[in-house]
Design a protein around this nucleic acid. Structure first.
Lengths: 294, 294
DNA sequence: CGATGATATAAATTATATTTATAGTTGCTG
DNA sequence: CAGCAACTATAAATATAATTTATATCATCG
């Protein structure tokens, strides 16, 4: 049995048109007819009903069922290709959400360089949901993902390596600047400048507002934490971010939250269950762990 | 790319000998050489190192990595074959552990017969661990599994449909027979006749003995609940079984447990995540649910 | 040194996939 | 209703790929 046939089949399931599938693969139409016939013989079943009356192609239950497996097989193969390619180049793709890339990664990079393995690493930036898919599809080999709940996915293994509380940042000129700790409920009347590009921060923030029964007054959302910090410094509003964002600025004050059962920013090292780590990759992960856990 | 090549490759990973793999598949040795070459070209990598000095075949990291995916692909294909075969015959294989087969299934079968779909069902008996694998490998399509914890596996979906407490059964002549309820700790000095062939019962039983700090005096283990009940009736010992085993015998008395946080016998309907249920299979599951939930 | 066990290579053969050319079916349109 | 368009099937020819046959290479062992 040839993988091509599954590829044609998979496409036919989507296109429902033999001629178009043929065009997609730059082959002639009888090729597809034959491929499907081969599969139908191999599995001793009918995969499609050619309904000429209504001029449509109907997928049989067997076809539906095979489609699920074909999909799995094809993406498994795709992942294999990507992984072996990375292995051959001695490089690995590390997925990083912007926050982690900005605030953790410089430290990590220094360590990796010392060990002479920085050159083997290629980073891939993206939101946590997007990175999860990239990882699943083999575009990334390892990812650092932030979340508010421990990660648990079918094809991925997550190892939690850090758990940071969320903090409130206010301008040094803000009345609350004198405080060290604060209850979230005390922020009911505040204006908020929030982080735009992170599911994780929003999930956590929403949890807290809901629990404290208020609708926050969000005056601005930015995709860059520096922009947020500058706005906070100017006292446009206060913000809600993980402590790791703290950059020792003296125009912004960080306040800890006193609430019970606060959501946490959980950082995990995530890989595919099917992925075999090379010694180099193991070293990278070791460095990540050591640097990030301190 | 041909599936055969992956099959040869997979076998070579296990056998580490080209000639033997060739023999396994009834092909000649150069076939295997060529197949591996094709894969190495396809993935643009080296999969094996032929160490002629020590006369051994070394699998490279790429080889190790591909092996994982090859395995997945091959078993996915095997499952597809089995599923489509069952679909064509309009039959489904229902995995049942002995307890459920004995005490639940007669009722279920009556319902299925009424609906005229009993003939489409083929049962497969086995322990819960064995059935889990059978399900994963496509030998069974649906299984009813017992467990003490909710089931959660990578490739399987479990829907809990019943949760029964475990009970103690004693002879009608036993001093405790006058009781209705009992604490597990009161059984410290008793002799036990236990069920042999069930992980679930043993797990639950061990939890309770450990929690109550005693080593149970197990005088006999049997694979058949009727044997157990007969022994209990003869006052050879007391037993620990799910309530569903209750058969309205008058020589045996059922006692409920009064302990907090008792383990439960959780029954789940389990299928593969990849499995597409046919209308017939959906009807079967509906009947299972209706009959077993009453 | 010759035999053995292992893998590789090349040419011949066989098997399989694809194309080319064409036919069948249905719907639509002038 | 003829004729064309859109779609799929079939058959023969061709191209591609896999397998076998026969033989070579390499290292080990007695």
């Amino acid at each position: 049995m040839n993988i091509n046939d599954l590829d044609y089949f998979n496409q036919l399931i989507k296109q429902k048109n033999f001629s178009k599938v043929a065009a997609d693969f730059n082959v002639t139409q009888p090729t597809i007819t034959m491929a499907i016939k081969r599969l139908e013989r191999e599995f001793n079943t009918t995969l499609f009903l050619r309904d000429r009356v209504h001029n449509e192609l109907i997928v049989t239950p067997s076809g539906e069922q095979l489609a699920v497996h074909a999909q799995t097989i094809l993406s498994e193969l795709q992942v294999a290709h990507q992984e072996l390619e990375h292995l051959a180049d001695q490089h690995m793709v590390l997925g990083l959400p912007p926050i982690i890339e900005n605030y953790y990664f410089p430290k990590v990079a220094a360590q990796l360089q010392q060990q002479g393995i920085l050159e083997n690493i290629q980073t891939l930036a993206g939101g946590s949901v997007w990175l999860r898919n990239a990882l699943r599809d083999g575009q990334a080999d390892v990812a650092l993902l932030g979340s508010t709940e421990p990660l648990a996915y079918r094809t991925l293994v997550a190892e939690e390596f850090d758990r940071q509380p969320f903090n409130i940042f206010v301008s040094a000129r803000h009345p609350l600047a004198a405080r060290k700790r604060i209850y979230f409920s005390e922020l009911k009347r505040e204006k908020f400048v929030l982080f735009n590009s992170s599911f994780v921060h929003n999930t956590a923030f929403n949890k807290l507002t809901r629990r404290n029964h208020f609708r926050p007054d969000v005056v601005f959302r930015a995709t860059d934490t520096h922009v947020i910090m500058n706005l906070v410094a100017e006292n446009v509003g206060v913000t809600f971010l993980t402590g790791i964002v703290d950059q020792h600025r003296n125009d912004v004050v960080r306040l800890e939250l006193l609430d019970d059962e606060q959501p946490a920013f959980i950082s995990s090292i995530v890989t595919r269950t099917s992925h075999v780590l090379t010694p180099m990759q193991q070293r990278v992960i070791k460095v990540l762990r050591a640097t990030l856990e301190e």
